[in-house]
Design a protein around this nucleic acid. Structure first.
Length: 117
DNA sequence: ATTCTTACA
DNA sequence: TGTAAGTA
């Protein structure tokens, strides 16, 4: 299928699909016309990408992870240690962010305590 | 009509 | 990420 078809099925835009390719996440074949040609497994790949992105992973991490995911996998389950490492690292980043946000909120709480209103 | 690349008031 | 331009 061509780019607009895949975009439609994946609920995204051709722009995003080209961006994924630019980031090394997708490798569609090319027609003689220069048009990108996506195979059947492309849709699942895009779904995996979207899932990983929603988990906060950057495209670099995802590019390293994707190759160790069997193309026949529907539900993304931790397969190789690569994936586990990336996920654990992202979780750690989230934990740190939460701590920083908590500290920022505490500061605001103290400032608000003197609010004359 | 669609897609492609490149670039950015 | 959107969008415009100029092609193929």
């Amino acid at each position: 299928m061509r780019i607009s078809e895949l975009a439609r099925q994946a609920g995204t835009t051709p722009r995003a699909l080209r961006y994924y390719e630019e980031q090394g996440l997708l490798h569609p074949a090319r027609l003689a016309s220069g048009y990108r040609q996506y195979d059947e497994q492309a849709l699942r790949a895009v779904r995996h990408i979207q899932l990983l992105l929603s988990a906060g992973l950057n495209t670099t991490a995802i590019a390293e992870i994707l190759p160790c995911i069997p193309d026949d996998v529907t539900v993304l389950a931790p397969t190789c240690p690569e994936l586990l490492d990336e996920l654990a690292a992202e979780r750690a980043r989230i934990t740190r962010s939460m701590q920083q946000l908590g500290a920022a909120r505490d500061v605001l709480d103290r400032l608000l305590q003197n609010d004359p209103r």
